[in-house]
Every structure is written in C-alpha cells, then in structure tokens.
Design a protein around this nucleic acid. Structure first.
Lengths: 359, 359
DNA sequence: CGTTATTGTGATATCGGTAACAAGACGATG
DNA sequence: CATCGTCTTGTTACCGATATCACAATAACG
C-alpha cells in the first residue's frame, strides 16, 4: 500500500486539529482519510464486528490514538438501533442497599459494553412514570425497576415500548416480566427457624393489616411455616396498622401482645422500624431484651446496627441482586441476538438472618 | 382543515399498531401522518422550539398520546448535536455522601431537561480514565469529576473533547475548569474556632506528611489560622504518615503528642479515621475523652457517628454540592447558547463543624 | 389598497455512524 | 486454466430526528 504523501498527510492532520480547536470533534471520516481506508473499515477495526487485516487495523488504531478520536455512540446507536443503555430506576440514591446493587450492576454491565442510566423515583409512583418516559426516549435495551408500585400509564408505556422489563429487589406477585429478588417468605422462614434454633418457643409476629400488599403477608407466612415445621404454635400473629408500618405502630402493638399472649418469649416484626419501636417500648417498661423478650426485624436498616442491643434482622445481599441482574440482562441480549425472546425468568437471591444481640 | 377520511385514518392506525407488535416503535412520521401535518410540525409541537397553532398542537399531542409515541432522544441528539447528558464520575455509589450529591444533582438537572450519566471509578485513576472515554462517546454536554487524581491521558482526552469540566467535592489547586466544593482551609478553621469557643486552649494537630497533597496541609493551615486569631499557640502540629492516614497512624501519634506537648487538652486530626485511632488509644490508656483530652476529626465518616463518645467532626453539605453543580451547569449551557464560554467558576459550599461528645 | 412584518407550515439536507450487499485479490482445487 | 471460496475492503442506503431555508397566509401599517 503506497504510503501517503507526507505533506498531504500533515496538511490533513492540521486540518483536523484546526477544526478541533473550533469545537468540531474528529469523526470517523477523519480517521479514515488519515489511515487511507474507508469509514466502514474504521468502524470494523474499532468494533471487531468483522475481520480486518492486522496491518490495516494497526494503522487505523494508530490514527485513532494520534488524533484522540472517540466514536460517537449517539450516531452509532441510531444507526445500529442498539443504544447500549440499560435503564434502572431506584427509589433513592443515598440508600447504601441500592448503592450496592447499582455498583454491582453497572460493573457487570460495563464488562458487556453496556452502560446504566440511573433514575431515582423518590418512592413516588408518578415520579417513576415520568422517569420511565424520559428513559424510554433513550431507547434502553432493558429497563430495570425497583419496588412494585407502578401506575397504569407506566405499564402501558412499558408495554408499547416492547422493552424487556426486570423487576428487582422484591418478587412481585404479578411480575411485568423478569424478576431478580429475594423471597420474603423464605427470608422470614429462615429468620424464624434460626430463632427457634436458639431456643425460643413462644413466638409472636407483628405484621401489617393483612389484606394489603403481600410483602407483609408473605413474611408472616414464612414465620408460620417455620414454626409449624418445628411443631410450635404459629397462630400468634398480630396484624396492626396499614403499611408502611412505623416505629410508633411497633411500640403500640406491645401492650396488645402482652395482653393476648403474656408468655411470649420472642417477637418477629414485619420490618426493622417496627421491631425498633417494639424494643424501645420494652426498654421503657423495664422488659429486658433479649432476656425476657427477644426481638427481630426485617431489612437490616441502619437503625438496626446502631440500636442497643443490635437488632437481629434479615439482610438482603444487595450486590448479588446487582450482578445477577447483570447476568440476566446479558442472557436476554444473547437470546435476542439469536432471534428469540427469553421467557420471563425469576431469579431468587439469598436473604440471610443476621443474628445480633436482640434475639 | 379537512378531517381525514375515517377509514383511511383507522387503516393508518392499524398499520402503526401492527408494526408496534413487531417491535418497531412509532416514530415522528407516524404521528405526522395521523395528525395530517409534516414531521417538522410534530417536532415543533413537542419541543416548543417555534410557534405552532394551538389547534395543530392539540391535534398532534392527541395522536402522540393515542399511539404512545415517545420521541427518540438518540436521533434527536444526533441531529441537534446536543445529547442532553451530563456525565458524572464518583468514586463509589454506596457512599451516602456521594449518593446525596448525585440525588440533588440529578433532581436539579432533570428540571432543565438534562439527564445524568453516572460512572463509578472505585477510587482508581485508571478506572476513571476508562470511564471518561466511555462517557465521552456519549457526547455529554458537561462532565463532572470527583476527587482530584487524574491520569495524563484523562486530561488529554478531556482537553481534545473540548467539553466543560467541573470538579466537585474538594477544591483542587490546579483546577481543570470549574469547581464546586468546600474549602478544607475554611472548614478546619471553623471546627478549630468552635473548639476554642468551647474553652480548649492547648490544641494540637495531627496531619499527614507535609509535602504530599494539599487536603491535609490546607486543613492544618485552617487549624493554625483559627488559633492565631484567638491568640493561642498554633505550632503544635504533628506530621505523621503519608496519606491516606489510617486509624493505626492515629493511634501511633498519641505517644508522640504526649511526649512533646504533655499539657495538650485537645487534638484535631486531619481525618476521622485518624481521630478514631487517637480516641481508641486514649481509651486504652485510660485517658478520658473529652475530659482529659478532646478529639475532633474531619469528614463525618460513618464511624464517627457510631463511636462512643460520638466524634466531633466536619460535615460537608453533600446535597448542596449537587444542586450548586446543577445550577452551574445550567449557567454554562445558557452562556454557551448565547455564544460565549463561561469563564472558570469556583463555587464554595459550606462544611460545618458537627459538635458531638468527643470535643 | 399595497407593502411590509409576523405567524404557521413544509421541503430538504444533514448529523455520524452501521447494515447489507458488492466486488476485488488471492490461494486452493479439480 | 477456469472455478470456487475466503479474506478484505468499499459503496450505498438508511437510522429518526432537527436546522435551515422557503413560502403561504394573515396581520399591521401608512
């Protein structure tokens, strides 16, 4: 291949630099001219999408490096109809649980050449709706949702978009598509079993008002299953306030428990705040935790680590959710590339009892 | 305007739905046909970029809603040469400080119709380099960097890209562009002044080895300035290990302090881990904190809240960094739209003393 | 009433890549 | 030597929006 006239090459290079100074970034065609190939060949050299002679590739990469060319993913996305984005909506960004999930997910995806678009809903379903619309505009290849409350319009938008949906963190009863989460039932059963193992015999559950949501009722079912398996009384269940249940609700439920089942030696609460409320109320009344009554919660909230004594609870492996979701996304894309859609998957990640001093 | 033949309209609608089912999303042209206008008018109706007759807009929006059209931002970005992205690199995602900053920033930017692209570097400068390259491919309008260590290639890439850069969180001595951060000097001065106010008179500073970095040396300067202003001895400065200074380094420095300045009644450490190490060592030796020696740190790490007694420290307003950065970005864009580049700005956010029980 | 703004709409070119197809060069094969 | 297949490269036609210019209809004005 006849080497380019040195003068001409220098002239072209200068031209590129001049335009760069005026704010016009080099594009593929600039690289192509300098490397004396067609733009298409540059594209191939950079994407390994089809074979390129070693010598040609070397020359192209040399020029790329020399002029600091960075391919425009916007143009690439438009042309190839693959954005390289995965959208994920989380309720909040300053929650370390979601931070772990996001970190693991984005690390896993960047291996696959995908980038995450993060949005936070602030726990508001209509914030989610707006975000979904924004995200869909970026044509993500997959959309990941946390939490299970979606508006009708959200669902309609997702439906017409025809993008694979993954719901993570929890496992909704009527999934929109794929799911990566933990099982509230299994987690509560595991925790309860661990407490039975420690010798507690008269356990009581404090939950939300039964008919609403399933987070709470699945946990209660897990609690009961563990007790049943151990041959213990599993009917001591209090269903209190409508969700979300608060610390105050927890505190209020203590007297009811003491009245109905005075010999209770352990309480499993539907969530950490509730458990914390119970524990505080015990301490106020001079009931020793865990000696007289043991207490456990659910969710490994920050307050549980800080509490005195530390609150026994269930901790979800947030990172695992992230990278398992990443794996699933890669699978989905592979299937898509092969021409068929992956049937809805459900991946369960572990949620393990964290035995602290309160139980 | 003659209404479209109902049959024909229904036919077109069916056509769109059919394609939708086969994975082809509706595009602007579909909307245009159904609303009997040109694609350009649809664009204008959706972007308010130039006047559209009220009746026309109504018709367009109706169709948009009917077929669930969401404009393709990828195509829009390519055409308009404005991606609508702001890239931000943070060291980690599960750090609540950065979470707050990210949350505030993305909330502020979404008001302005911008979207954040988040990357996490895991505190590795060459991870940052890779991320910068990835991000640049998305043609962000502004790029936001945290932490001040950048590789040469990172800087070169940013330079050739010609994108405005904002460094946040701290205030580097040689900024690449704009800065939104707190002043280590002012923050340390504020903390020290607060301690002087509480009555401590013989204060000592434990820092990093002097010549390295400036985080530490600015904090020391702030410490000294506050003491000087109060007419107290400001020469009690220990410069210990090279950064990053650890809990162990803190513990090790206690005997040196006690030997050189036995009458010390308060110690200001360059960072929380160092302070925590000092405090632990005091307790090990039976020195009461804060009665015999008061201790303060810097940064409001999690350990500082958990410590017993709680560690007095400096807390940075992480959210403020986020929204102030957002404001700055909006300013930058406005200036750009007006045709001129905003000269490098430096925005200082407050970093306030958090007086806990250790001082 | 003619002339000049103003408003509302359309036609065309283009943004920077890639998919799909075409074609040249070259060695292997019968 | 003709033919085929493989390897490598180039050509062309988009992807789905918007910038820009052009132009008709209407309003404003002397």
């Amino acid at each position: 291949m006849p080497d380019l006239d040195e003068n001409k090459r220098a002239e072209m290079l200068a031209e590129v630099r001049r335009r760069q100074a005026r704010g016009r970034r080099p594009r593929m065609e600039d690289v192509a001219r300098l490397a004396q190939v067609s733009p298409m060949t540059v594209s191939r050299a950079l994407n390994a999408s089809s074979p390129v002679a070693a010598e040609t590739r070397r020359r192209v990469l040399e020029v790329v490096d020399e002029i600091g060319y960075v391919p425009d993913q916007i143009a690439s996305g438009l042309s190839s109809q693959r954005s390289g984005f995965v959208a994920i909506l989380v309720p909040s960004l300053n929650n370390p649980h979601f931070g772990d999930t996001l970190g693991a997910l984005s690390a896993r995806l960047s291996e696959a050449g995908l980038q995450v678009l993060i949005g936070h809903t602030d726990y508001k379903p209509d914030g989610e709706e707006k975000l979904i619309e924004t995200m869909l505009g970026r044509r993500p290849e997959v959309i990941v949702l946390t939490y299970d409350g979606h508006t009708d319009r959200s669902c309609a938008l997702l439906d017409t978009a025809g993008i694979p949906v993954i719901e993570i963190w929890e496992t909704p009863r009527e999934p929109l598509g794929h799911v990566v989460g933990f099982s509230n039932f299994e987690a509560a059963r595991g925790l309860t079993a661990a407490m039975v193992e420690k010798g507690y015999k008269r356990l009581c559950f404090v939950g939300e008002r039964v008919d609403e949501g399933t987070r709470g009722s699945e946990r209660r079912a897990g609690f009961q299953a563990a007790l049943q398996a151990a041959g213990l009384d599993c009917e001591r269940c209090l269903s209190g306030a409508p969700p979300p249940i608060t610390m105050t609700d927890g505190a209020r439920s203590l007297p009811q428990i003491l009245e109905r089942w005075p010999d209770t030696d352990a309480i499993v609460a539907v969530s950490d705040p509730c458990a914390f409320g119970l524990m505080t109320e015990c301490q106020r009344r001079g009931i020793s935790v865990p000696d007289q009554i043991a207490i456990a919660g659910f969710g490994d909230f920050e307050v549980s680590r800080l509490a005195e004594p530390g609150l026994t609870t269930v901790g979800v492996d947030a990172s695992a959710i992230g990278w398992r979701t990443g794996d699933l996304i890669v699978e989905i894309r592979d299937a898509e590339q092969a021409g068929d859609a992956l049937p809805p998957q459900t991946v369960i990640v572990p949620a393990n009892p964290l035995m602290r001093r309160s139980a």
